[in-house]
Structures are given as C-alpha cells and as structure tokens.
C-alpha cells in the first residue's frame, strides 16, 4: 500500500517560496491502477516523484509498502528504487544501447548476473511484444515501440510498483491505446500497482480504478473512476470529465439553449447510463408507454472504462406535462440517472 500523509512540498526559488504540493493525504491500494489527473503546473510530477525519492516532501511522509521513502539513506533508497519501476513521457532510453541492452540496464544496476539478465530480458521482450526488435536501437523504433521498451525496462527488477509519468502524452491516440492496453494487461497479469499521472482524462477512464484530481497542489476530488465520471463534484473535475465524455460540450450547450427557447414547453434531459443499463432499450420503452410524447435525440455517447461502460444521452421531450412527468418517473424506476436541464450547463 502507498500512503501520503499530510504531504507538502515548498520550493525555494529566486522569486520566493512556491508551494507545489499542499496537505496531500491519499491511499493507494495494492494491485490497483491509480490515476492522478491535473492540468500542467498542478503538481502531478512533484507528487509522483516523491514515490521514488526523486523529490522529498518538505513536511509529511510518503510510505511505500511500509517503507518511509524520505527516511531512507542513499544506499537504502537506491535498493528501494530497484523495486520501483518508472516510465516517462519521453521514454528516456539510452540511444547507445539496443532494445535488449536497454532492458538489461536496470538489471546491470542491480548487479544481476549476465545469464539471469539475458533470461529476464528475453521474457520481458515477449511480455511487451517486441520480438524481432531485440537488437534494434531506439532510433529505429516508433514511439509506441519505444514506450514498450520503457515498460519492459521498468519491469526488469520485478518492481512492487510502476510509476508512469505522462507515459502516453507524446503518443498519437492509437498508440496511446496500445500502451494503455499493455499497462492494463501487465497490471492484471503481474498484479503490480500502477500509479500514473496524466492530463488526459481518456487515460483515467480507460485503465484506472481510482482517480485523484490535483489542482494547485491540492487533491480536490478523489474516488472510483466510474463514480467520478458519473458525479463529478468540483468544477475542474467536471471540465475534465466533460472534455472526455462529451467531446464538444459547447456545441451541445448551444443546441440545448436554442431548443429551450424554441420549445418552452419541452424538457431537455440528460441521462447517464453505466454498466448494463447502457444495453437496455430505455428510449423505446418510453415511446411505448407514452405514445403521445415526442422524443428527439440531441446527443449521445458511450465510453468504456476499466469498470464498465458509461454513456450519456441528451433527449428532448415534448408533450403533456403528465406524460413528461410519467417518463421521468419511469426513468427513476429504471434507476437511470436523469438530470433535467433548465438552461445550458
């Protein structure tokens, strides 16, 4: 288990003190994928670097599987770092080494024998799907392949946790998904805890179990990914969530405003589905039960998260007040989250 206890970090610069992290308390369970999301400058990098002692907290303590990181002396910290893998936005591979030698690099650092190094590298090359590229140099690889080498390298010493510092931010969308699938696969197969930081909500949605939203060095919201996606509380969280589930919220807003003006008697509702609800024929059921109700679909989408599907649907209902209320009641009985939109978000 990873624990942050009252962690704060202040940097002293020429222009005075800058607080990068403020009173962070957080627990990360074994075997989960924990995402920390925030805009640049929110303090994500500082926070994740505390886990392997690249940064030390000014106050508070960081605990990784029972070891207080900030208490370790140099030798102890080096040993602990062997067991904490890290992958980076820009991969940080050694250009002078082949794929195989890059993967063996952390093993050399941990002074593992040559025979064992070769065996381990062989396994990892298979695990990350780089067969045939063993003797290629990083300059001969694509971005996605480079990050695969980065992942294999990070796993070489059988680490307890894997840290991912914006590992997909330099990759195109398709490659991002490939690398995310690889991380999820590794998490499932090896049961390794993954802590990742990102500014892309897509990454959180796709593979994370829990998420913490960081802003101005503070954790402003944390919880299960599905829960945060369903009920984002803080404005910044909402912005992150909407940017992911509704790719163009502004456009939706404009349309909604217009419809509200044109049909003052109509109602616009936003439905949020998750899990199996996404598969139920709810709209057609409403049409069945309230034949006089006119329904038009404004916008809809569905997304896959690590814990199941989550979808949202914007509907306009026009008809008698009675029918509209009936439809809303029906939705309530179906336990579909329903929000009546008075005017744009």
């Amino acid at each position: 288990m990873i624990e942050f206890k009252d962690v704060s970090k202040t940097f002293t610069t020429d222009k005075g003190n800058v607080t990068a992290i403020k009173d962070v308390n957080m627990k990360i369970e074994d075997g989960e994928i924990f995402g920390i999301v925030g805009y640049s400058g929110a303090g994500k990098t500082t926070l994740i670097r505390m886990l392997n002692g690249l940064e030390t907290p000014t106050t508070g303590e960081v605990d990784v599987n029972g070891t207080k990181i900030s208490d370790l002396e140099r030798g102890g910290l080096r040993k602990k770092r062997h067991k904490i893998g890290m992958i980076f936005q820009h991969f940080n591979l050694l250009w002078s080494r082949t794929v195989r030698k890059n993967i063996e690099f952390p093993l050399e650092i941990a002074k593992i024998s040559k025979a064992e190094r070769q065996k381990k590298a062989e396994e990892l090359i298979k695990l990350v799907g780089l067969e045939g590229k063993e003797d290629a140099y990083p300059s001969e690889l694509s971005g996605g392949q480079k990050q695969r080498v980065g992942v294999a390298r990070a796993l070489a010493n059988d680490p307890e946790i894997l840290l991912s510092d914006e590992a997909t931010s330099a990759l195109d969308p398709q490659t991002t998904d490939e690398v995310l699938d690889l991380l999820m696969d590794i998490n499932k197969r090896l049961g390794i805890t993954i802590v990742l930081i990102t500014h892309e909500m897509h990454v959180i949605r796709k593979i994370c179990d829990h998420v913490a939203v960081l802003d101005g060095g503070k954790i402003i919201e944390t919880g299960e990914v599905l829960e945060v996606f369903k009920h984002p509380k803080q404005p910044i969280t909402k912005r992150f969530v909407y940017s992911e589930v509704a790719p163009s919220p502004e456009d939706t807003n404009v349309v909604v405003e217009q419809l509200l003006k044109e049909y003052p008697n109509g109602r616009i509702i936003q439905l949020t589905f998750h899990g199996n609800q996404a598969n139920l024929p709810i709209v057609s059921e409403i049409i069945h039960q309230f034949p006089k109700l006119r329904i038009s679909i404004i916008e809809g989408n569905i997304h896959q998260t690590a814990e199941g599907a989550i979808g949202s649907l914007f509907l306009q209902l026009i008809g008698d007040q009675e029918d509209i209320d009936g439809a809303l009641d029906y939705l309530k009985t179906m336990r579909v989250e329903t929000e009546v939109i008075e005017h744009g978000r």
Binding site: L54, L77, H82, M86, F88, H90, N92, E108, I109
Partner: peptide
C-alpha cells in the same frame, strides 16, 4: 531525462558515469 531515469532505477554515481 536519461540521467534521471538512471537515478530513478537506483544507479550509483559510478554506474551513471560508466554506464
């Protein structure tokens, strides 16, 4: 970044110089 990666892997100063 490469130096930082080596540091994060727990490399000693001597290992960073030679490797």
């Amino acid at each position: 970044g490469v130096l930082e990666a080596a540091d994060a892997m727990g490399a000693s100063q001597w290992q960073i110089i030679t490797k």
